[in-house]
Amino acid sequence: MSAAFESPAVLGLAVNKLNAWYGQAHILFDMAIEVKPGEVVALLGRNGAGKSTTFRSIMGLVPKVEGDISFNNVSIAGLPTYEIVRRGLGYVPEDRRIFTDLTVEENLSVGVQPPRPGLEPWTPERLYDVFPNLRELRGRQGGRMSGGEQQMLTIARTLMGNPSLVLLDEPSEGLAPKIVEQMADIILKMKASGLSLVISEQNLHFARLISDRVAVIEKGAVRYAGTMADFQARPDIRDAFLAV
């Protein structure tokens, strides 16, 4: 079979043998993740397991990284961050990190990238339909919004770049259960619009609501990978890696 026929099989994100260091500390050990188009994958693991470092390594934000990272069949390892974003990979970091001095509209404008063929382009108007709160707040400074509103804004801001895959780092952290439920709805809407997502999470209840597949990370490597259904049938995995 020719390469042209094989390629659809590896569309999406494929990470292999990824190693990363912060200074002297070796953080990731042969990390491997695969995300197919339209899928939602949850990375589960406690703080320090390597979830955020995995995301940051993929996005070119960790100085010392080795390994294969390919996105839609093209290697993106070693590219500068903005190049990776322009190829359609979106990143929502933990701790929200909105621009507090800028208004909601200005925050959104920082994220603007050209439309992507095959995906309906995001406009502020279309975003306000998904995040109705933001419409009323569009002139407000980011620093004067609640934590939940800020979290919505970081996701909306990343969508302005018209990504085809989004890395979402701990979207439910520090949010009230009711807001987390709204967040789950929004993530399912994003999935329905054709986006793939990788979501790092510690809240198993939340992960259960949104994800197709699960990867359990511990000490910088994947210790278990499977479908959400399989994972739920394996309390032993949960006890072995997500507890002491």
Binding site: F99, N107, V110
Partner: peptide, 19 residues
């Protein structure tokens, strides 16, 4: 706007695709 955003969080600006 980009400069004001970068003044606050330059890494985030890069993570949104700005060179």
């Amino acid at each position: 706007v980009l400069v004001r955003a970068a003044t606050q969080d330059r890494e985030m600006v890069a993570a949104l695709g700005v060179n």
